[in-house]
C-alpha cells in the first residue's frame, strides 16, 4: 500500500501539519516505508487470535472518586501567551 499525493495532503490537514510541495515527496516516501511495515504485519496469520487493544496484557486500574487536585491556575497561566479574566485567549474561532 502506498499513499497518493491527495491522501498525503488530507492526512497533513487532519494533523494540522503544513507539508509544502517540496517536502511532499520525501514525507510520502517515509510514510510509505511505515505502511510497508504494517503490510508485513498484516501478512501474519492471526486466525483465531483475539485482537488486543493495548500492547500490555493487563487491565485498567481505577482511581477512587476523590478530589486530589487544588487550584493552580496562576501557575499554569504563566505559560500562556494571552490570558484575561481567568480565561485563556486564542485567536477567534468562528463555528
Amino acid at each position: 500500500m502506498s499513499l497518493t499525493p491527495d491522501q498525503l495532503q488530507r492526512i497533513a490537514l487532519l494533523a494540522r501539519i503544513d507539508v509544502s510541495a517540496e517536502e511532499a515527496q520525501g514525507v510520502a516516501e517515509r510514510l510509505n516505508r511505515v505502511l510497508g511495515m504494517i503490510d508485513q504485519l498484516q501478512s501474519v496469520d492471526t486466525q483465531g487470535i483475539e485482537p488486543m487493544s493495548h500492547a500490555l496484557d493487563v487491565v485498567q486500574r481505577l482511581r477512587p472518586d476523590a478530589v486530589t487536585e487544588s487550584d493552580r491556575r496562576d501557575d499554569y497561566q504563566k505559560g500562556a501567551p494571552a490570558v484575561e479574566q481567568g480565561l485563556y485567549l486564542v485567536p477567534k474561532v468562528i463555528e
Partner: peptide, 9 residues
Amino acid sequence: NFKDMTGID
C-alpha cells in the same frame, strides 16, 4: 466578550 479573540474555560 473579546475582540478578535475567543476565551477558553
